[in-house]
Amino acid sequence: MDPVVVAAGSALVSAMATDGWQQTRAAVVEWWRRRRPDRADEVGSELETVRAQVLAAREQGDEDTEQALAGSWRLQLQQLLREDPALADELQRLLDEHLAPAPSEGDRAQHRPIVMRAEARDNSRVYQAGRDQHITGS
């Protein structure tokens, strides 16, 4: 399977559970509309159905279902590339610009750089953590 298909299928299903889903969905439907106008509305409906399944799977901790749904999208995308191999570059662009974009403002806040400095002398100890820290024992 083409690597861009694997990445795009996985990213698409992962994006379904994000706050930016509606923008991603719109970009994917528009991409299909330009490539296969006869299927665009059907794809839009299917995306919503699959999104509901992804959200339910995540709520239940069902990773197998989520992987199966990603696999289904990979197959659809692979078939599209089989019919028109020139679409690989456009699929890569869709992946780069809409399916796997830069982190949102909230994500950036959670993943900001941390600089820590410490100095220990004699029998002292230093414990540092960028986030949660659990120390047991003495």
Rank of each mutant, 00 (worst) to 15 (best):
R131A: 10
H134P: 08
Q23W: 07
P37N: 15
E48Q: 00
S124W: 13
R58P: 07
V4H: 01
P3C: 12
E48G: 13
S72M: 11
A68K: 07
A7F: 10
L99M: 06
A27K: 02
Q23N: 13
P103S: 13
Q22D: 13
A27S: 11
D84T: 14
P103R: 15
S10F: 00
S138W: 03
I135S: 02
V5W: 12
E48A: 08
R36Y: 13
V13N: 06
M1C: 05
Q110T: 08
G61R: 04
L75Q: 15
R51G: 03
I114N: 03
R121F: 02
R51L: 10
A15L: 08
E119W: 06
V29H: 03
R112K: 10
T49S: 06
G44I: 05
A26F: 02
S138A: 15
D96I: 13
G61V: 02
L77T: 13
T18P: 15
L69N: 06
R93A: 15
T65G: 03
E63D: 13
R121T: 06
E63C: 11
D132N: 09
S45H: 08
P3A: 15
Q76C: 07
A57D: 15
L77F: 06
P113L: 14
L80N: 03
V115T: 11
R131D: 07
V13C: 11
A15T: 03
W21P: 07
Y127V: 12
R125Y: 06
E59K: 04
R131M: 11
M116A: 06
E119L: 15
L94G: 14
V28G: 04
E46A: 05
R108D: 04
V54P: 10
W32V: 14
E105T: 04
P37Y: 15
R112L: 05
